[in-house]
């Protein structure tokens, strides 16, 4: 880690202004991933702009019954928030299934969204990696690693996005609010993270110098319930082998609203639009769930050691939908 300057920003505007003046700078939130990456030599900012004390730690209802979540709200506070637990349980559960109690106390909402892949090659600066150093190659592609993508990967990158929270946000149709040198803009969570294509160095659609200020959740669809399910190697404190966030409402035996997103399968949370199209209006039966999920996962292209993820994700999703249907 090379020496760096440090500035504690007093406002989002100041943070963005400072960044514009120092393009080698990075924003520091909780730092649970950034400091980790700096120690690994993967991130090497020449200045940190500390945004962790900005007044962005609000969780508040929107006028239409949605929820605004400030970028610096700590993961544990968000998971414990009454509105999140009662109206968006998938988000609370996703947060609680990730990391550890200590990390959740430190990690911020914005930082969680921006955390980077745990692909072993990305984290090791002695090896090639197109994400870390474009053009050097992707040794993961032919490796015996299991924790790689089965959907949406390219010959340039087969990494997966590690966040649980982002998967729930995708299924919950959250909006990411950004503040940048050119003012504010919003990006839907489903479009915030990218597929690797031939530019895997870019994880998200965020532009240089933009700061996440808040996330906004739309009102919960009427009658909809949600949950998050995750499978992992260890009973706790492990990244997902595969995970799913599901939102479902059923009326008179038929599915009204359905949203499904997978974690651990792709370079971004994988919103299952194909499955959702088949779910909406169909009878809420096991057969429907299986057919819909299978249709989504038909696009999967497993690598050497990770074909199990397809069946695993399928079972997680079908069971999650069945559990929600049974509740409604």
């Amino acid at each position: 880690m090379k020496p760096f300057g440090y500035l504690r920003a007093r406002s989002a505007e100041e943070a963005v202004r400072e960044h514009a003046a120092h393009p080698g700078a990075l924003f520091l939130g909780g730092g649970t991933n950034l400091v980790d990456l700096m120690k690994l030599g993967v991130a090497a900012p020449d200045r940190l702009i500390d945004i962790s004390r900005l007044p962005l730690d609000h969780v508040a209802d929107t006028e239409d019954g949605g929820l605004r979540i400030g970028a610096t709200v700590r993961n544990s506070a968000l998971a414990a928030h009454h509105s999140v637990r009662t109206r968006y349980p998938a988000l609370s559960q996703a947060l609680l299934s990730g990391a550890s109690g200590q990390l959740r106390n430190t990690a911020t909402t914005g930082g969680n969204l921006l955390q980077r892949t745990r692909c072993a090659y990305f984290q090791d600066t002695s090896k090639p990696c197109n994400k870390r150093q474009p053009g050097t190659g992707c040794p993961a592609l032919d490796s015996a690693q299991r924790d790689l993508a089965v959907l949406g990967h390219s010959t340039h990158c087969v990494a997966t996005h590690p966040s649980d929270m982002a998967v729930a946000l995708s299924a919950l149709d959250a909006t990411v609010h950004l503040h940048g040198p050119d003012g504010g803009r919003t990006v839907p969570a489903t479009g915030f993270h990218r597929l690797p294509g031939d530019t895997p160095d870019r994880d998200t659609e965020i532009r240089p110098g933009e700061l996440i200020t808040e996330l906004v959740l739309p009102p919960r669809p009427e009658g909809a319930a949600s949950l998050y399910r995750k499978a992992r190697d260890r009973a706790s404190f492990a990244f997902a082998l595969a995970s799913v966030a599901a939102v479902l409402s059923v009326r008179g035996g038929r599915i009204e609203h359905a949203a499904l997103a997978f974690g651990g399968l792709a370079h971004r949370p994988w919103r299952a639009r194909t499955a959702e199209d088949l779910l909406r209006g169909a009878p809420a039966t096991e057969e429907t769930f299986e057919r819909a999920v299978d249709a989504e996962l038909a696009a999967a292209r497993p690598l050497r050691e990770n074909a199990f993820k397809v069946g695993l994700a399928r079972n997680l999703a079908v069971d999650a939908l069945a559990e929600l249907a049974a509740d409604s």
């Binding site: 520091l28 730092g31 400091v35 109690g101 200590q102 106390n105």
Partner: peptide, 9 residues
């Protein structure tokens, strides 16, 4: 609140 002090600057 508990935290991992190794990740706190």
């Amino acid at each position: 609140r508990r935290a991992n002090s190794c990740l706190l600057l």
